[in-house]
């Protein structure tokens, strides 16, 4: 990782960068998050798994306010998430997000997808942003695609562009919501490789995924959710070897 890219200093969970305290969320009557508590230290990698509809997306989307929680408190890098547009925008600048369906801007070239945020949000000059974007594309190994439109790229390439775009704002935390679920099998590895490199460079990451190989390799903590609750949270060794909860056992038996 380039030294400019906001390399977090490796610290332990005693220095939390993200904290969810008794977070509750409802969609209408539906209780989507139940008393969720989660603390993520700087440089920590958390993998979130669980059955469909268990609230994984909802949880990580609350962290950058794409969803609004109704109860409990969320802190990002010492700032509390409150309903104030300025605060929300400030928090979002600390967080990069990668979506299952890439969500690149189809009307902009790859390089413009990358420079838009820095130019508009951080008011970095266009040429400086472009230089930075090229560096970022090197990192995700597709510098030759800079002038193309997203529609001209493969899924794996698009997702790597999306990762590069999220990194452009030098976030302190990266959120991934099933980054490989929409990809053809042969493209999954190229995206996971980029994510593993990112992890090795010390980025704080929260990754919703069912790629258990990836989880085993990079996770400091694996969180299992079911029915809006965090049922189990453990480091990969104990998580896979002897899960405590029956629901975790069932889930693992289905997925492994």
């Amino acid at each position: 990782m380039t030294p400019t890219a906001g390399k977090p200093t490796q610290k332990n969970a005693g220095d939390p960068i993200i904290e969810l305290r008794d977070v509750n969320k409802w969609y209408g009557d539906f209780h989507a998050l139940r008393d969720v508590n989660l603390t993520v230290g700087r440089g920590e990698k958390v993998v979130v798994c669980g059955p469909s509809g268990s609230g994984k997306s909802t949880m990580i989307r609350c962290i950058n306010r794409l969803e609004v929680h109704q109860e409990g408190r969320i802190f990002v890098d010492g700032m509390e998430m409150v309903p104030d547009v300025r605060k929300i925008e400030a928090i979002r600048r600390q967080i990069g997000m990668v979506f299952q369906s890439f969500n690149l801007f189809p009307h902009l070239t790859v390089i413009d997808n990358l420079t838009l945020g820095p130019v508009l949000v951080q008011e970095i000059p266009q040429d400086a942003a472009e230089a930075q974007a090229m560096e970022m594309l090197e990192r995700v190994k597709i510098p030759e695609q800079a002038k193309k439109y997203p529609g001209q790229l493969s899924g794996g390439q698009q997702q790597r562009v999306a990762i590069a775009r999220a990194l452009m704002l030098k976030p302190k935390v990266m959120l991934f919501d099933e980054p490989t679920s929409a990809l053809d099998p042969e493209m999954i590895a190229e995206v996971l490789d980029v994510m593993i490199e990112l992890a090795d460079e010390g980025m704080t990451m929260i990754v919703v995924t069912h790629e258990m190989g990836f989880a085993r390799k990079v996770a400091d903590l694996i969180v299992f959710m079911d029915d809006g609750e965090i049922v189990e949270a453990a480091s990969p060794g104990p998580f896979f070897a002897n899960p405590e909860n029956d629901r975790t056992k069932l889930f693992l038996s289905q997925i492994l």
């Binding site: 925008e89 600048r93 979506f99 838009l116 945020g117 775009r165 999220a166």
Partner: peptide, 12 residues
């Protein structure tokens, strides 16, 4: 997703 991606990179 377009709205969310724009918000996620901090656009007003």
């Amino acid at each position: 997703g377009q709205y969310e991606a724009a918000e996620a990179i901090g656009l007003s």
